[in-house]
Design a protein around this nucleic acid. Structure first.
Length: 933
RNA sequence: GGGCCUAUAGCUCAGUUGGUCAGAGCGCACGCCUGAUAAGCGUGAGGUCGGUAGUUCAAAUCUACCUAGGCCCA
């Protein structure tokens, strides 16, 4: 007789091989046809809200690993909250305006660009953005992310553009928008401002000059013994043409400054640089005097070398000792750092250069000259005046216009600003930062110091693709229009016609009929600049959270990469504090950047870029999701083929565990076959208790956004608790007991609860596989159609007495020690399979009482998976005894199991067999008979 | 150059307020099984905690510096 036929071996169609690459699109299709996300939304109605707000990626190019990481994490959160019983919606968004798209469109048009009007270019930009929104949308969907993909928010939607205008008008009405000057890159040939991205760096020959500024006042003998009437501060510059705009000399507060005395004059320079300068200037008889620190010199006032103007000595941390003299010529109208330090000292952002790069008439000596052409004249004049110490030339990297390739200049131009320190704006923003939960906590420090130190927010850009700064100014009295009615009128026009309207209409057409300025004039000038795109995305909280019944303001969570402390978190905070006096979020979570296997950033030039599309095609999106869950994303997270290979193996192990559960549940109907927990075999009860612990740990980790805790806990549970311990022990019972026996049904009930609960627990992470498992689950006819529509298992009823839990823990530990003893005999070829063995134990007293109890029920041998266990008082007389290191007082001896091997259950038996089944043990005979009955 | 952050076995992670020989799983090696089978089980070998110098009776855990790396600025 073939006794194998009488066993209940696993049967299932659930494939061992996942074939994710082919399977996932099918699951996606099923989700779409059944509108699972829509069903979740419907089911959520009336539940407490969890408001997650999606930050908009830029609608340009295909998604990269950073996008994938970000959206998958968001999906984890939303799916978790949803299964936990919250109304959690995911409205995805895209950032559509801005320079990169305008550039791409310009590139495609090439030279024809000149023939296109602003409106036509804007139209092309809109089409371009729409195209990439669609592309990225499909790529995001492929990751298995559940979201309102058919109702996203786009910053170029008319309604969104109207929100931008409405929000900005709030700043205008509060008087929180002012026009000021700020240096920008400026091409004098194209007569246009350039963004950083439009600047190319190339080598260029410039003059290199040292100029002395005589001390006028404030000298208090900081450096001993100098004659202040003959003391000078020496600056170095490569742009002599910026000297007419010099307003200060900047020193580093912590550097030491000394004076070089030469022919009766004293020249103040940084001490560290003095020897080098002596050499460079070839001064034979000069001497270096004493020293003082930079901060001692603050307040000294010098005289401009050729203009009747004072130039005070100020302090700034940006001063370096790499080049020059440590005394920096400061022209706030011609340099970024000069501008910032100038603001601190209340200096004018003075710019005496016009659009064409020509000195304005106000400039003494050089009016009407093109700036770089004036360089030699300026040098010559100073030479003649005796204020020049040395002049030469340098070859250095210098910014050029990307279009005409001519050298560009830095030049202050009129820009619009939101002031940081008016009406306590900055202080309020800082206070709101402190009210927000930052995860990880150091996010607070990061954004706090940024907001604390940032200059006023420059919100204007001289570009085409964006939302206009809707400022109208009276032609006659130059008064800004701030009327709320006018603002509302403009918002309405934008809502109906889009922001293009502003550019297409005359100023007067943008106003309500008959509107006049308080001065009586009806003629206005409209602003042509557009808004910084950070303002666009900064109002998303207003556009998306408010007015949507699925949402509420503020959001519970913003979740983006750590670059957004400077970006979206920052602009959203300022916008929201400016208009609502509160942060738009309660919690802000950041993740690190995706780097390669060695921790280096991915770049085209390094050739180490891994594209998500490739991973999906090779491994499947599920592996990508598992990768996100496996790594601690708070730091930079690595990806490599080795890592993916490991994850694929881990995935296979998890999958096989489910396949085994499913295989052993093929004849199980939870409705009719389930055994109540208190009637279960103790080990079945125990494993459910273990699962309860894992579930609690995982759900807490999900709530704390610690997804890698899920990965490790869940995976370890599959391997250690299930595969190596419980399921290995359970096989004997499931296979050999009659189908409908309580013993077998008890084990099946535990396996069913595990199957169902584990599928739910992993659903936010392994969304595809959990769904696949769900469709194979016994009793699925009584379940919701998708695992994602279910709620996490409630295991609160699975209680287990502490003393039993500790007993099973000890049994588990003991099983490990038995394995060690068995392994020794296995190496000696005494045994092969563990069932070939009889194990004799000498036990410490505490263990002994526990084991004897277990032995009475004859369960020990099944736990150890050996054919016989004997408890001895002493193993002293035996040889080859294994002495445990882990458990004091434990000794184990291993012997060949006596009797013969049961052909059916493979356990050795010593009792007399029955005539009908001569090669089968009595337990099996009993089971065979009751199975027949 | 500045701000914030990171650095534990080949890989991914644990290591509570500094205090028993630094842990897990995978991978690897060796072996078993052939009734989860392109599966399953067992045993074993791998780190002195990026480096240096300190604080301390005692440091992976605190401090400083250095190195490598990341984000944001300049």
């Amino acid at each position: 007789m073939d006794y194998k036929e009488t066993l209940n071996l696993p049967v299932t169609d659930f494939p061992m091989k996942a074939n994710l690459v082919h399977k996932e699109p099918e699951v996606l299709k099923q989700w779409e046809t059944e509108d699972i996300y829509g069903q979740i939304r419907k089911e959520s109605a009336g539940k407490p809200k969890y408001v997650f707000h999606d930050g908009p990626p830029y609608a340009n190019g295909h998604i990269h690993m950073g996008h994938a990481l970000n959206k998958i994490l968001k999906d984890f959160v939303v799916k978790f909250q949803s299964m936990k019983g919250f109304d959690a919606t995911f409205v995805p968004g895209w950032d559509c305006h801005g320079l990169p798209i305008e550039h791409q469109v310009g590139k495609e048009l090439k030279k024809k660009k000149q023939d296109f009007s602003k409106s036509e270019i804007r139209k092309l930009c809109r089409e371009y953005a729409a195209k990439f929104v669609d592309i990225q949308k499909e790529e995001f969907k492929r990751l298995g992310v559940f979201a309102s993909w058919d109702k996203p928010y786009l910053t170029m939607d008319y309604s969104y553009e109207a929100t931008i205008v409405r929000e900005f008008s709030k700043f205008i009405q509060k008087g929180m928008v002012y026009k000021g000057l700020k240096p920008v890159h400026w091409c004098t040939t194209c007569r246009t401002a350039l963004a950083e991205a439009e600047v190319e760096y190339d080598n260029h020959k410039s003059p290199s000059i040292y100029v002395k500024f005589p001390v006028k006042s404030g000298w208090n003998n900081q450096i001993q013994g100098l004659d202040d009437s003959k003391t000078y501060f020496v600056i170095w510059t490569t742009t002599p043409w910026t000297l007419p705009a010099n307003l200060a000399i900047c020193l580093h507060p912590d550097f030491e400054y000394t004076a070089i005395t030469h022919k009766g004059e004293s020249w103040v320079v940084a001490k560290e640089l003095a020897p080098g300068l002596l050499e460079e200037w070839d001064l034979q008889d000069a001497k270096i005097q004493g020293a003082c620190s930079g901060k001692d010199l603050e307040g000294v006032v010098c005289q401009h070398p050729f203009i009747d103007r004072e130039s005070p000595v100020i302090l700034g941390d940006h001063v370096t000792l790499e080049q020059g003299t440590g005394c920096v010529h400061t022209a706030p109208g011609h340099g970024q750092e000069d501008y910032i330090v100038g603001q601190k000292y209340g200096l004018d952002t003075y710019n005496p250069v016009d659009d064409a790069g020509v000195f304005k008439p106000i400039v003494e000596h050089f009016a009407g000259q093109f700036v770089t052409k004036a360089n030699p004249d300026i040098i010559e004049k100073m030479q003649a005046d005796g204020t020049l110490i040395a002049a030469s030339e340098v070859d250095h990297s210098y910014p050029h216009c990307w279009r005409c390739h001519q050298p560009i200049i830095f030049r202050a131009t009129a820009q619009w600003f939101i002031p940081m320190d008016k009406d306590g704006f900055r202080a309020k923003a800082l206070a709101e930062i402190n009210k927000t939960r930052w995860v990880p906590h150091w996010g607070r420090e990061r954004i706090y110091s940024m907001v604390e130190n940032r200059p006023d927010w420059c919100v204007s850009r001289q570009r085409a693709w964006g939302v206009p700064i809707t400022v109208l100014t009276c032609k006659k009295c130059e008064e800004q229009v701030t009327s709320p009615d006018v603002m509302a009128h403009i918002v309405k026009l934008v809502e109906q016609n889009g922001a293009d309207f502003w550019f297409e209409k005359e100023a007067e057409e943008l106003l309500p009929g008959g509107y006049k300025c308080s001065c009586g004039s009806a003629e206005f000038v409209k602003e042509m600049d557009i808004l910084d795109v950070w303002f666009d995305s900064g109002v998303s909280h207003a556009a998306v959270l408010e007015g949507n019944p699925d949402m509420q303001w503020p959001a519970d969570l913003y979740l983006e990469g750590s670059d957004q402390h400077r970006g979206w978190f920052h602009s959203s905070l300022l916008e929201s504090v400016g208009t609502r006096s509160a942060a738009p979020y309660k919690t802000v979570l950041t993740h690190g950047y995706v780097v390669d296997g060695k921790g280096k950033k991915m770049s085209k030039s390094a050739g180490n870029v891994i594209a998500p599309q490739k991973i999906i095609d090779q491994y499947g999106a599920e592996i990508l999701r598992l990768w996100v869950a496996s790594e601690n994303y708070r730091e930079d997270i690595r990806i490599s083929h080795e890592i993916l290979k490991r994850l694929t193996e881990a995935y296979r192990k998890i999958r096989n565990t489910f396949r085994f559960l499913l295989g052993n549940l093929s004849d199980f109907d939870p409705k009719t076959d389930a055994v109540p927990v208190d009637e279960m075999e103790e080990i079945d009860h125990y494993i459910l208790y273990r699962f309860r612990l894992v579930t609690e740990r995982v759900l807490k980790a999900f709530g704390d956004f610690e997804f890698h805790v899920f990965y490790h806990s869940f995976y370890n549970f599959c391997i250690v608790d299930l595969s190596a311990f419980y399921l290995d022990i359970l096989k004997d019972r499931i296979y050999t007991y009659p189908k409908n026996s309580r013993e077998r049904r008890s084990g099946q009930t535990a396996m069913y609860d595990l199957l169902r609960g584990m599928a739910q627990l992993m659903a936010p992470i392994l969304s595809f596989t959990s769904e696949e498992i769900w469709s194979y689950m016994p009793g699925r006819g009584n379940e919701v159609s998708s695992v994602h529509l279910s709620s996490f298992p409630d295991l609160s009823k699975v209680s287990f007495p502490d003393h039993l839990a500790s007993k099973w823990e000890k049994l588990g530990q003991l099983k490990g020690e038995v394995s060690k003893a068995l392994e020794l005999r296995r190496q000696e070829k005494m045994i092969g399979h563990s069932l070939d063995a009889l194990v004799r134990l000498e036990l410490p007293s505490d263990l002994k009482s526990i084991l004897e109890e277990e032995q009475k029920r004859d369960q020990l041998k099944y736990i150890f998976i050996v054919s016989a266990v004997e408890i001895a008082d002493s193993l002293e007389k035996e040889s080859n005894v294994y002495t445990s290191e882990a458990i004091a007082g434990l000794k184990i001896s291993v012997h060949p199991a006596p009797g013969s091997k049961c052909e059916r259950c493979w356990n050795y038996f010593v009792e007399e067999a029955t005539p009908e089944h001569p090669s089968v043990c009595l337990r099996c005979v009993k089971n065979l008979e009751s199975a027949k009955a």
